[in-house]
Write a protein that binds this DNA or RNA. Sequence first.
DNA 1: ATTGACTTGTCAAATTTTGTCTAATATAAA
DNA 2: TTTATATTAGACAAAATTTGACAAGTCAAT
Lengths: 95, 95
Amino acid sequence: MNFGEHIKQLREQNQLLQRQIASILEMDTAMLSKIERGERKAKREHIPSLAKLFQTNEKELFTIWLADQVCELVQKEDNPSEILKVAELKIKNSN
Amino acid sequence: MNFGEHIKQLREQNQLLQRQIASILEMDTAMLSKIERGERKAKREHIPSLAKLFQTNEKELFTIWLADQVCELVQKEDNPSEILKVAELKIKNSN
DNA sequence: ATTGACTTGTCAAATTTTGTCTAATATAAA
DNA sequence: TTTATATTAGACAAAATTTGACAAGTCAAT
């Protein structure tokens, strides 16, 4: 589940229109549409508003948002899992 | 071990000067210096030349290079490992 | 004090990302 | 079928980021 699909699902569960979310996030519906379809990225500042709006955990939403970007970076490559494993090791050793 | 430190180590093992590597990669030493210290990113196209030059495995070098960028994306965050775990799950489920 | 290796800071050019607008498509109600 | 509303697509310039190049800097050895 991508970040975009995720918030689309939340939006539909709450029976809201793109227009309404977009207004709260201060963007037009075209932009939100693109975010929902993963054509554009939401900004970090949007996460708190979205979490509040959907009454969902902000940290979890943020994790999904960032994991999405990690995936985008590696998923077109040969062995994405291997790359992530190396990254994880590096992170763990840096503490 | 970051990508920059890695190639610096390779360079020193091979007793080469920045000047020599830089010339092969067609950049100036200032740029290579920055790459070694992680202030700038090497370009993808540089990996093959570096691998050949140091007679090391290109795919492995590439993995280190990309893992570096993954780390940069997540390491300043609250729970980098958690984010990577979510990313890994997403990757695995997308196959 | 000169030389050679490396680093630092600055800057504009190049590239990428972003937001907005307009038009297109889709869906549903009248 | 018209009308209205929701969503998506495409094009575009503004804004932001990245890049490469240069000049000047440090440092160590001679």
